[in-house]
Design a binder for these strands. Structure first.
Lengths: 228, 228
DNA sequence: CGTGCTCTTGAGTGAAATCAACACATGTGG
DNA sequence: CCACATGTGTTGATTTCACTCAAGAGCACG
């Protein structure tokens, strides 16, 4: 087994306050795992036996309704932890994690989580700050779902996506992973038909450019106008 | 200033693992505050300078949209902490807290929160477990809002209310604080008109009894049928 | 080169919002 | 004590947004 390089973690805010030796200790407990696009990392309801750090790729956190409908709770970009609900007292995973693109992860047995939280300065703060950000996101999501029309929700969702996972291109800002109309409908509580119509309209007015599984926002300002 | 009685806290799960002396220390740092029904404890965006324990009454956590619409994020029953978002790295309150009935609270300056979390066994676990429960609730809320019809969301909301804050009466289970059609519409992302029609229909079929600001669920099972 | 995803677009439908009017309860101040 | 304002709740009529149903076109991959 190859030793992992310490620079993998040293640049992440989460580990910024740790010294080389501490990072070494943490890395020596980690397992590296690679996942193809579309692979399931863990499923809702499973015993939460590992927690993960996403080194590269994107993770989609999804939930299923009893009726079998799926909704996407959030996307996790590289550098962030996931599967850490045990820090909030859960013993099973509260949602399913699927890869939105090819992913590279580190994983640790869950029993180390409390140790890390207590032993490493800044780690606990970082973890709970991550949780705080996600909770704030969820709250905004609820506010949107409860009060806004589909058009506004989709505009807000796209704006969030380009802010969190946007990549600059010649034409504008591109969402960094493959994303379908169906995916967006599962993020906004809508249908792929309605999303298709909306994106077609926005393409016509020059707000976005879109091809198969790819969306480039060419005029974010126009999107902001649609978002409220 | 009256000394607060230790039994106030000793029976709460949050403080179960603490001895008398520790509870005494905590109480000596606390301030008691009483609020009339409808009073605002703190507002979204304010610097988070205190955290609270609700001894008696009910707290409504609400958020405002830029457009001025209001939605109710959750209700907090007595015995629970609120205003603890600082534990997730927030420096301002992420939502407004309003009393749904007359309330009695203890409050502490926020600078003690980290001390409590670190010093008292079980307190940290309890706090994060509370957070975990609320996050799980929010997740379910999102799933409901994204996939269910108004009727199902209202049924689920009533079921949650009677589970969390229900009080047994001769007729059935009553929601323990005054609640209007408008309130329920703000919990479900609907309108008071639709809620009124729904509750009228359910009253006609014998599922609930309702008068001004009061709802008694007489047949929870029928409500379950409406909930999915 | 067909088979399965992904995406588009039109037509019809329905759930719930909006608009509108009124009834009733509660509390306030003259 | 009454008059009035305010808050709450009901119910009907109308409208609209977005879902459902339906069909087909384009692309990608084995």
């Amino acid at each position: 087994m190859n030793k992992l390089d310490e620079s993998l973690l040293a640049n992440l805010p989460l580990f910024a306050k740790l010294d080389r030796a501490q990072i070494r200790d943490i890395l020596d407990l980690a397992t590296t795992r690679r996942f193809d696009a579309g692979a399931t990392v863990f499923e809702e309801g499973e015993a939460a036996e590992h927690f993960y750090l996403l080194l590269d790729g994107y993770i989609r956190v999804v939930r299923l309704t009893p009726a079998g409908e799926q909704i996407i709770a959030l996307h996790i970009p590289s550098g962030h932890l996931f599967g850490i609900a045990a820090a909030l007292g859960h013993t099973t995973y509260p949602a399913t994690s699927v890869t939105a693109a090819e992913c590279l992860c580190l994983s640790w047995p869950m029993r180390h989580l409390n140790g890390f939280l207590q032993s490493y300065t800044g780690f606990s703060d970082g973890v709970y700050k991550t949780v705080g950000t996600r909770v704030a996101d969820m709250n905004n999501r609820i506010l949107e779902l409860a009060t806004q029309q589909v058009e506004q929700r989709v505009a807000n969702t796209l704006l969030r996506l380009i802010n969190q996972t946007g990549r600059k291109t010649d034409d504008g800002i591109e969402i960094d992973f493959p994303i379908t109309r169906q995916d967006i409908s599962e993020m906004t509580g809508s249908t792929l038909h309605t999303i298709s119509r909306l994106l077609s309209a926005w393409e016509r007015e020059g707000t976005i450019k879109s091809t198969r599984k790819k969306i480039v926002v060419t005029d974010p300002h126009k999107l902001v106008l649609h978002s409220s």
